[in-house]
Each structure stands twice: as C-alpha cells, then as structure tokens.
Simulated assay, not measured.
Amino acid sequence: MMLAPLVEVIRGGRLESLHYGAVAVVNARGDLLYHAGDPDFLTFTRSTIKPFQALPFLRAGGHEKFGFDSRELALMCASHSGEAMHTQTVEGMLRKVGCDEHHLRCGCHVPMHFTVQDKAPPAGATFNQLHNNCSGKHAGFLAYCVQNGHPLDNYVEPAHPLQQAVRDSIAEVAGMSPSDMAMGIDGCSAPNYGLPLSRLAHTYARLAQGDQDPHYGSLMGELFRAMTLHPELVSGTGRSDLAFMQTVPGDWVAKIGAEAVQVIGIRSAGIGIAVKIADGSTRGLFPATISVLQQIGILPSAEATPLAPWARPQLHNFRGLHTGEVRATFTLTKDKF
C-alpha cells in the first residue's frame, strides 16, 4: 500500500500532523494523466457513486414516467444538508411515486446543516428519514421499485433486483467486472463498492462528458446538468461541493464521500480527479483537492473564488488566536500513457 504525504498541519511553524493519501487524474478514455501515491488504491466510493446509482432508474425512463425534474434528479445524486429545500423536494418525489417517509430504509440522523454551522439543534427538535443526507437517493430507489414492480421493504438488500442493477451500472461506468468490485454496506444501509481510485476518477470523467458518453449518452447528460444546475441541492449551504461547482458553473461536477473521498469531473478538460485521504479526515481533503486543481493548471489561484476558505485553512483556538494552518505539500507525478 503506497500512500503519499499529502497535507501538513502546522503549529508554531512546525509540523504537528500529517495526512497521507492518494490522487488519480484520468481522461475520458481512462488513461492516467497524473498521480500521487498509489493511483489504484482501493477506495470505498461512499456517496461519490450516487449519480451512477441513479442510472438504472433513468435508463428505464423512470424520470419521464414520474415527471422528475432537474431538481429531483439532483436530489437523487445528493448528500444533502437536510435543509427545507432538500426535505421538501424529497417529500415531493416520494409523493409522485405513491410512497412516503416510512417507506425509506436510510435511517435518521441530525441534519448536516447543524454540523456545517457548528450549532446544536434547537431544544425539542425532531427529525425523520427525510433529513438523512441520502434520502433523495433512496426516494429514487423506491421510484425504480414502484416502476418495475419490485418489493419495497427490502430494496437495500444486495440481492434485490434494484441493487443488482445498480451494481452492474457502476461496474459498466467504471470499466470493471461486477465480481471485481469489493462490496460493503454504506451508512444509509445500501450496498457500496470499493474501486481503484483511478477507476473512480474515470467515472467522473465520463459523467462530465455528459451527452458525449458512448454508452449512456443523454442519461449522463441529464445527471450532469441536474447536478451543475442545482449544486445547492446536491450539497447544501456552506458545503464544499457547492463551492467547487460554483467556482466554474456548468463545467465542474463535484461529489464528496464519507471517510474523505472527493471526485471532480471537468467537462472542458475532459478529465476526472479522485482524491482519498487515508485517515478519513476531511481536514486534509479539501486542501489536497484544490492543490491538484492548481498543479494541473485548472485553477490558477483559489483567491477570489468560492474555494478560498478551503484552500489553506487557518487554525484558531477557542479564544480566536491564530494557532497554525493546514496546507497541501505534495507534488503530482505526470504520467505518460
């Protein structure tokens, strides 16, 4: 397992902590262009594969059958913050397919917008599965089951026809055999898959090409447009994916996953970028990802962009005193293919 030191945490001008990880940058053909560490590091994809978990539904024409608009497609790809704009949209999706919150199998957690704001929920506040960051994806899962007459109660089980179709779609987009993908269970109870980091980057290079994808064509285009038209629904107020997609609107499609995995597709450059921080800390993920964009010439400077606060975070203590910073220190290796 070859991991590279990617990000340093500095205190008093000296190294205090170090985040290791790996980076892969590939083109739409899957050729490796740049890397740091092991570009084929096995990485559980977590929420980064949500667009491809939606593909069976779109492929069967479900979005047309139920009248899902671009906002609802964006929620199918989202790790949302549980704000009203998210929960109300998901509730509408469920209503369109004849389901409601109790049909969901994603579980309930405190809405992410409280974490982002570093605030505790109001006293006596109650939440339900609509607030789960994956509820939009699960609403899409239920829609597929209703469309195809599949059972609703066990739709997250790996052997369910829905999850078999999802597995096959992910494998096809990644250019792999389904049997070669490691499987685990995600935080929302659905199956999740481990891919070589370069294969994960390739999926987003394909997503960014949208209508030009040789296999999924207009379906990839629908998902790309939905995500880039509504980045606030894909993530939420003050979130990193919103900042990435607002930096170059309509060109960058971005998705974070739990345990510090970030993937970005750049339409104009025809590339996909995947970054994994091995210890699962997002503290190192954002400076590393922004450094990749800078090193390959996509982002000359993060200053005066929505990414400025994420590029080199400054650390302060509880009295507001400056104590250090988080900074990317690696150099990408350019590959010949």
Score class of each variant (00 low, 15 high):
residue 247 T to M: 13
residue 295 Q to E: 13
residue 288 A to P: 00
residue 275 V to R: 08
residue 271 I to T: 06
residue 285 L to N: 03
residue 282 T to W: 13
residue 291 S to R: 14
residue 263 V to K: 01
residue 288 A to Q: 03
residue 290 I to G: 05
residue 241 D to G: 11
residue 290 I to F: 05
residue 289 T to D: 07
residue 274 A to H: 14
residue 282 T to L: 09
residue 274 A to C: 09
residue 267 R to M: 07
residue 247 T to C: 14
residue 256 I to R: 10
residue 292 V to P: 04
residue 249 P to F: 10
residue 266 I to P: 04
residue 259 E to R: 05
residue 249 P to Y: 13
residue 257 G to H: 04
residue 286 F to H: 09
residue 250 G to N: 08
residue 263 V to A: 13
residue 263 V to Y: 02
residue 296 I to N: 11
residue 253 V to K: 01
residue 287 P to Q: 11
residue 282 T to M: 09
residue 270 G to H: 08
residue 239 R to M: 14
residue 301 S to P: 08
residue 291 S to M: 10
residue 244 F to P: 03
residue 263 V to P: 03
residue 278 A to D: 12
residue 263 V to N: 06
residue 241 D to N: 15
residue 239 R to P: 09
residue 287 P to V: 03
residue 249 P to Q: 05
residue 295 Q to C: 12
residue 253 V to W: 00
residue 248 V to D: 14
residue 250 G to Y: 05
residue 278 A to M: 06
residue 271 I to Q: 01
residue 298 I to C: 12
residue 301 S to Y: 08
residue 276 K to E: 05
residue 283 R to L: 11
residue 246 Q to C: 13
residue 294 Q to T: 13
residue 263 V to I: 02
residue 252 W to T: 00
residue 273 I to K: 08
residue 270 G to C: 11
residue 251 D to C: 09
residue 239 R to A: 13
residue 266 I to Q: 04
residue 293 L to C: 08
residue 251 D to F: 03
residue 243 A to R: 00
residue 285 L to P: 00
residue 280 G to R: 04
residue 296 I to Y: 12
residue 289 T to S: 15
residue 248 V to R: 15
residue 279 D to Q: 04
residue 251 D to L: 02
residue 293 L to R: 01
residue 260 A to I: 03
residue 281 S to E: 09
residue 270 G to D: 06
residue 256 I to T: 12
residue 279 D to T: 02
residue 274 A to L: 08
residue 293 L to T: 03
residue 273 I to R: 12
residue 257 G to P: 00
residue 263 V to S: 09
residue 276 K to Q: 09
residue 265 G to A: 11
residue 239 R to C: 15
residue 281 S to R: 00
residue 282 T to V: 07
residue 281 S to V: 01
residue 292 V to S: 13
residue 252 W to S: 01
residue 272 G to L: 07
residue 283 R to S: 10
residue 288 A to E: 03
residue 285 L to F: 02
residue 253 V to N: 02
residue 241 D to F: 06
residue 245 M to D: 07
residue 290 I to D: 05
residue 243 A to I: 01
residue 278 A to Y: 08
residue 269 A to R: 15
residue 271 I to L: 15
residue 278 A to E: 11
residue 288 A to G: 09
residue 281 S to I: 00
residue 250 G to L: 01
residue 284 G to M: 09
residue 277 I to K: 10
residue 290 I to W: 05
residue 271 I to G: 05
residue 294 Q to Y: 07
residue 292 V to A: 10
residue 273 I to T: 10
residue 263 V to E: 04
residue 239 R to F: 11
residue 244 F to V: 15
residue 264 I to K: 05
residue 299 L to A: 12
residue 303 E to V: 08
residue 298 I to T: 10
residue 302 A to M: 04
residue 256 I to C: 14
residue 276 K to N: 07
residue 277 I to E: 07
residue 302 A to C: 07
residue 246 Q to W: 05
residue 266 I to R: 04
residue 249 P to W: 11
residue 243 A to P: 02
residue 246 Q to R: 14
residue 245 M to K: 03
residue 254 A to K: 03
residue 248 V to L: 15
residue 266 I to M: 13
residue 243 A to Y: 03
residue 241 D to R: 08
residue 244 F to M: 13
residue 249 P to S: 12
residue 265 G to Y: 04
residue 285 L to A: 06
residue 253 V to A: 03
residue 300 P to W: 13
residue 294 Q to E: 15
residue 301 S to R: 10
residue 264 I to E: 01
residue 241 D to Y: 09
residue 291 S to P: 06
residue 303 E to F: 05
residue 296 I to F: 07
residue 250 G to R: 01
residue 248 V to F: 13
